[in-house]
Design a protein around this nucleic acid. Structure first.
Length: 266
DNA sequence: CTGCCCCTGTAA
DNA sequence: TTACAGGGGCAG
């Protein structure tokens, strides 16, 4: 489920619920922990206090005393604070806190990953990540600079985490719709005006998604993050465009679906 | 940079 | 039964 806004909402929720708390136990499925083991991760983090929560792109970093816990939710992972009683179906990991509450990681598809390592090691691992679109260094000039030499379709460019870190299939499509840019456009061929529009679109789409995600996340164990964001093109194949009423089209790009309006996106 | 793969659930 | 799913590592 998660792209940048959802992961950011998760981080805020975890930050509020667990900062300063000590981890007393950790249970996790082996697949989630590979190539480490659940036991090794548990030994590394138990007894440590959560000092801060950091997001880098779609990556979550829980910084403890001298060691950090890295998580990536991939396609279907959910992470949320929960009470002691919640024994919901099939969690992938449960991190018990010293106040009786816990952090629950659920993932029906079991693609999420988790690892414990010193923060420097994790930073090195995440080194190739590109600019975070919520950071101050994300400017129209920076974006244009990153894409000037790319011959990939602009949709694929936006989804490349080494360039811009955090956009996925949904918000790439939504940002391109707002900017009026066809997802198949060769990135390097975008002009200055379009780079400016694309930058503004990314910023506004993420801000709105974050806002709707915050509302959704307020219910403990309830609605998943991001569900209240109303997509203009994603998942709307064949339905009329909210702007020009033409039918939204779906095409495949790099094996993934891209949605766009043939009228509004040239 | 693109294709294939990793998994499991859901819908057509 | 098949296609597809919001991600990313890896091979080619």
């Amino acid at each position: 489920m998660p792209e940048l806004p959802e992961v950011e909402a998760v981080c805020r929720a975890v930050r509020r619920a667990a900062t300063g708390r000590r981890i007393v136990a950790l249970h996790a499925s082996p697949r989630l922990c590979a190539p480490q083991t659940p036991g090794a991760i548990a030994r590394a983090v138990c007894g440590k206090r959560l000092r801060s929560v950091e997001r880098r792109g779609k990556n979550i970093l829980l910084h403890l005393d001298g060691i950090s816990l890295w998580m990536h939710l991939r396609m279907t992972g959910h992470l949320f604070p929960a009470g002691p009683g919640l024994e919901s179906g099939g969690y992938a990991a449960r991190v018990l806190l010293d106040n009786g509450r816990c952090l629950l990681l659920e993932d029906p598809r079991r693609l999420a990953v988790m690892r414990a390592a010193p923060p420097q090691k994790l930073s090195a691992m995440l080194g190739p990540l590109g600019v975070d679109p919520l950071s101050l260094s994300f400017t129209p000039e920076r974006l244009e600079g990153l894409g000037r030499a790319s011959r990939a379709a602009v949709k694929n460019f936006l989804m490349n985490q080494r360039r811009v870190a955090g956009l996925g299939n949904i918000y790439s499509a939504e940002a391109l719709f707002r900017a009026g840019i066809n997802p198949r456009t060769i990135t390097a061929r975008l002009g200055r005006r379009r780079w400016g529009r694309l930058h503004a679109s990314i910023t506004s789409v993420l801000a709105e998604a974050l806002e709707s995600g915050r509302r959704a996340y307020r219910r403990p164990g309830g609605l998943a993050v991001g569900e209240t964001f109303r997509c203009a093109v994603y998942g709307r194949e064949g339905l009329p465009c909210f702007g020009c009423r033409r039918r939204i089209r779906r095409i495949a790009q790099s094996g993934r679906s891209s949605y766009f309006c043939p009228g509004c996106q040239r």
